[in-house]
């Protein structure tokens, strides 16, 4: 999918950036009145729990990116009937499932300490749960069709259709309904993503965007690995071994 050198850059870059974010995000101390770049402000009600911003949000972001990549390659497959695009689409869906699970776990842990329970059906939790269900349904559909060409075609249609409902689940409903998650209706910092409000200091924002970049690169690297593995499997099937 990519050149050998560029995938090396993505590979080492993502490892470097995520390690940096991991260390910096956990080690930089909090301070009531931050003086230097090496201090985070204290967000009332969140304190140390605010550090989850650097991990949980990029994971959810990557899950949504994986979803859209899957839908886009679904469209590409339908237009060209090239089985390689189906391979990319299904690989991306699998990674989307992985990142959704990671986002759910980090979110539930955070909710345990911030809200008092791992799971309380907050609108955000409902929407990530539905994302997991969509991936589950996608793979259930794939296993229910024998013919390779038909499986690729119908699952491409399903990933496109579910891609159309993702904006409702991720960007619309949780912001219109009352909930505890930052950015829900009635949140005093305002509707919309937390990282765009002025509660987040600029050094946190830099680290956050760096983390987004790192996780996206990590996704690209993993996608490349899976696509290559998928290609080998296809070759093996075709050669009849």
């Amino acid at each position: 999918m990519f050149g050998k050198t560029s995938i090396k850059v993505v590979q080492y870059g993502s490892v470097l950036i995520i390690s940096f974010v991991l260390i910096a995000g956990l080690a930089i101390p909090l301070s009531a009145s931050p003086q230097s770049w090496l201090e985070f402000p204290i967000i009332p009600g969140l304190e140390d729990k605010a550090r989850n911003l650097f991990f949980h949000v990029p994971m959810s972001w990557t899950a949504v990116v994986a979803f859209f990549v899957s839908a886009i390659y679904g469209i590409k497959y339908l237009r060209s009937k090239n089985i390689d695009f189906d391979n990319i689409s299904v690989s991306s869906a699998g990674l989307g499932l992985l990142f959704s699970v990671l986002a759910t776990i980090t979110g539930a842990l955070w909710a345990r300490f911030n809200w008092g329970a791992f799971w309380n059906w907050d609108p955000r939790q409902t929407s990530i749960f539905i994302l997991l269900l969509i991936y589950g349904a996608y793979f259930a559909l794939r296993s229910a069709i024998d013919s390779e060409e038909k499986r690729a075609r119908l699952s491409a249609v399903y990933t496109i259709l579910s891609g159309l409902t993702v904006p409702f689940l991720v960007f619309i409903m949780p912001r219109m309904m009352a909930g505890l998650h930052p950015g829900a209706l009635g949140d005093e910092s305002g509707k919309g993503p937390l990282f765009e409000t002025n509660m987040i200091a600029s050094n946190m924002r830099v680290l956050f965007y760096l983390s987004l970049l790192g996780f996206t690169m990590f996704f690209v690297w993993l996608l490349n690995l899976r696509v290559r593995a998928g290609k080998l499997e296809l070759q093996q099937l075709q050669s009849g071994k």
């Binding site: 269900l133 969509i134 349904a137 259930a140 069709i145 024998d146 249609v157 259709l161 619309i172």
Partner: peptide, 26 residues
């Protein structure tokens, strides 16, 4: 549209609500 998909699959009955639920939930 999901009925059109399901009509081509092997397990028609059980898969239908599984596919439809996440898309219909909004």
């Amino acid at each position: 549209i999901l009925a059109a998909i399901i009509a081509k699959a092997n397990t028609k009955g059980t898969l239908y609500p599984v596919l439809a639920f996440p898309i219909l939930i909004p």
